[in-house]
Design a protein around this nucleic acid. Structure first.
Length: 313
DNA sequence: GTTAATCACCCTTATGCAGA
DNA sequence: TCTGCATAAGGGTGATTAAC
């Protein structure tokens, strides 16, 4: 057994993890000391002992503060994950003490909020009323780091090819075609069929470049020999898209499930246009390096069930 | 002047051991 | 088996030094 093996197995404590994360975030020994309520020498000593124990330099010291080395960055990444695991264990234990059945932290892409997720969470609540769900809405770019750090249990949304990483697990819930929508009563909604030529001169509300639909849609335009529409705005917020369509003759794209959800509410019309081959997989992404809690497994079952049952179009 | 490292020292806790 | 003491180890402090 090497010195490093021995130290990690016998000496590394959660206070070391907290120290590493605080040093990474504050990059200043004195500030870290104040943050964790000890004096600066205590931090300096603890860090030096860790480095001696591991026989690795974890931080470069400079007159401006400290910066992690490659070894430091590696250990900080795992420290952060272990602290999140401990926090999750604490939450679960508090939940059990309070009679709850667990807590699931779900990252959700905004375009899944209106339709699939409420059905799934409602199913979950039917089966396990004391399981609590914490939803965090955002883009894949914002949610993925949280998933990798252990601050989320899973992400529900469009599966993106570019986000596939070896440490991530993924499951497709459904394959959703992309629909074209406009306000109710829109002139194009009265037509039986629309062609590319009919829609290219319209004002478009396009998905933001942060959204997962942006690139596939851009490719679809190219494949059909059309440039991206000249008259457009880029929007990520579904609420803004709906509000904007009400006040203009603009058209927008939405996946089928969401489009029909808002059509049933009388907020949009689904236009008679078909995007060939523009089908987006809707799915779940999770972190393979973390053990899935029973509550999370149950929510995935509910998501699969809700996606399979769908809603009448 | 700012920041980190070092030093000598203190306090608390764990452990081992002798004696009742 | 329990109690009390000695000792070691761990973790902290204030003061000081060194580097930039």
């Amino acid at each position: 057994m090497t010195q490093l093996d021995w130290y990690i197995r016998n000496e590394l404590r959660s206070r070391h993890f907290r120290l590493l994360v605080a040093l990474d975030e504050l990059r200043n020994v004195g500030k870290v000391a104040a943050h964790i309520n000890v004096t600066q020498p205590a931090v300096s000593k603890m860090l030096a002992e860790m480095e001696k124990g591991l026989d690795l330099k974890l931080f470069e010291r400079t007159p401006k503060g400290v910066t992690p080395t490659h070894y430091g960055e590696c250990l900080i990444r795992h420290a952060r994950r272990m602290l999140n695991d401990l926090a999750q264990a604490r939450d679960e234990l508090h939940g059990l003490l309070a009679g709850d059945s667990g807590r699931i932290r779900v990252g959700v892409l905004s375009n899944v909020v209106p339709a699939l997720l409420p059905r799934s969470v409602a199913l979950l609540k039917q089966r396990s009323p004391r399981t609590n769900v914490l939803l965090r809405e955002g883009t894949m770019e914002r949610l993925l780091p949280l998933l990798l750090q252990g601050e989320l249990d899973l992400i529900v949304g469009r599966l993106a090819e570019k986000h596939v990483l070896p440490e991530l697990g993924g499951k497709v819930l459904s394959q959703e075609p992309v629909m074209l929508i406009a306000r109710p009563g829109h002139a194009l909604a009265r037509r039986k069929k629309l062609s590319w030529a009919d829609i290219m001169d319209c004002q478009w509300v396009l998905p933001s470049s942060e959204g997962l639909l942006y690139e596939p849609l851009e490719r679809t335009f190219e494949q059909h020999g059309f440039p991206k529409p000249a008259n457009f705005i880029e929007v990520l917020s579904v609420q803004f898209v709906l509000a904007y369509l009400q006040q203009t003759d603009a058209i927008a794209t939405m996946t089928r499930d969401i489009a029909h959800h808002y059509r049933r509410q009388g907020l949009v019309s689904v236009l008679p246009f078909y995007f060939p081959k523009l089908i987006r997989p809707l799915g779940i992404t999770w972190n393979l390096s973390r053990t899935m809690s029973p509550s999370t497994t149950l929510l995935i079952e509910c998501l699969e069930e809700a996606a399979a049952s769908g809603m009448p179009a």
